Amino acid sequence: MRHSLLVEEYRGSVLENVHFGVVCGVDEHGQVIYSAGDDMHVTYLRSAAKPFQAIPVAKQKIDEKFGLTSREAALFTASHRGEAYHLEGLEAILQKTGIAEDELLTCPTYPLNDEPRSACLAQGVAKRRLFHNCAGKHLGTLALSKELGYSTHDYYEHTHPAQQAALDTFAYLAQFPKEQIQLGVDGCGFPVFALPLRHIAIAYLKLACPDLIEDTKTREAVVKITGWMTENPDIIASHNFICTALLTDSNIIAKGGAMGVYGFALKKERISFSLKVLDGSELVWPLVIASILEQINYGNKETIDRLHALVPREIKNDNQLIVGEKRAVFTLEKK
């Protein structure tokens, strides 16, 4: 497997940590135009698949049928962090769809963000299925299953018609044979897809450039979903997280997944990128993506600045003294 050294971390003058990975960028024709490492490296999308898994939900106009707002529907694509505004939307979906919380497969947990988690512990609030960061995705598939008369007790099985619809749609957008997509089980219990980074980038390209999608219903669903994401960047993750920082730029569609996989696409430039940090680290995403944007001379410097603010180059100790630095050290190879 061919990979690239993406990030070095120095403490003083000593190299302390390294992060290897792979980056792939494609143009509007699906051709690889930038790379660092093997663009055919196979990886699971994990939560980076959520926008695609929501397409069957949008196709059936679940948001309209149940009177959901854009902020509520955006949760179908989100990895929420348990903030009050996330819970408000999730509770509204339960109320409007008639889904009971115990119908969700997601395991009871506490919010991911420190402040709401601490508040739950201080107030003696019990763990909830709704606190799980994949609860929105599960609610979308449950609502779709109820609307179409599918069984709901097994809505998460890969053989379930709602899951097969998501897989069919993703394979179509990624321009990759469905039977060659490798399946695993995600942390939340949903099927998760593995395929080459090049085809993940191609799928993300379609999110930014829906005019490339021939099927009318799929194209309309993608326009709706990306609208939810762009209108509600804080819903997709939360403050101080990269997905929200990128989606604040209306020119970008972006979503990350566990274990270091990320996909993002630029609308005006009509290019997209996928990447995988091989040690699974998500902490270096902002540095890597900022470097990609800098190397392609991306015009919105505010977006790059937001990424650097999330993960500063300087490494500080507990006393907030600068003791080292992080460096993005890869160079994109132009094809």
Rank of each mutant, 00 (worst) to 15 (best):
Q295Y: 05
I236W: 02
K127F: 11
I99L: 14
Q182Y: 13
Q180F: 12
V22K: 01
K255Y: 13
L278Q: 09
L75Q: 05
V57I: 15
K146L: 12
K146G: 06
L6Y: 05
A36R: 01
P191R: 02
L310W: 03
K268A: 12
Y172K: 08
R71S: 14
C120R: 01
A194Y: 00
Y156G: 01
K127A: 14
F193E: 02
E325H: 15
V26E: 02
S281V: 02
A171W: 09
K217N: 11
K137D: 05
E91M: 04
L173R: 03
L167T: 07
E333G: 11
E269Y: 08
H153K: 10
E8P: 09
H86V: 03
D168F: 11
D27E: 02
K255C: 12
V22L: 06
I242V: 15
V185I: 15
A78N: 00
A49V: 07
I236L: 11
G257P: 06
A237G: 14
I33V: 15
L167S: 07
V32I: 15
K268E: 15
W285F: 15
I242P: 08
T331I: 09
D279W: 01
R129Y: 05
Y298S: 06
H41F: 15
R46P: 14
D114W: 02
A166W: 11
S145A: 15
H153S: 15
F176Q: 02
I322E: 08
Y155R: 01
A258K: 03
K96I: 14
A143C: 09
Y34L: 14
R306Q: 05
L142H: 01
F66C: 03
P196T: 06
E147A: 12
A143S: 09
P196Q: 02
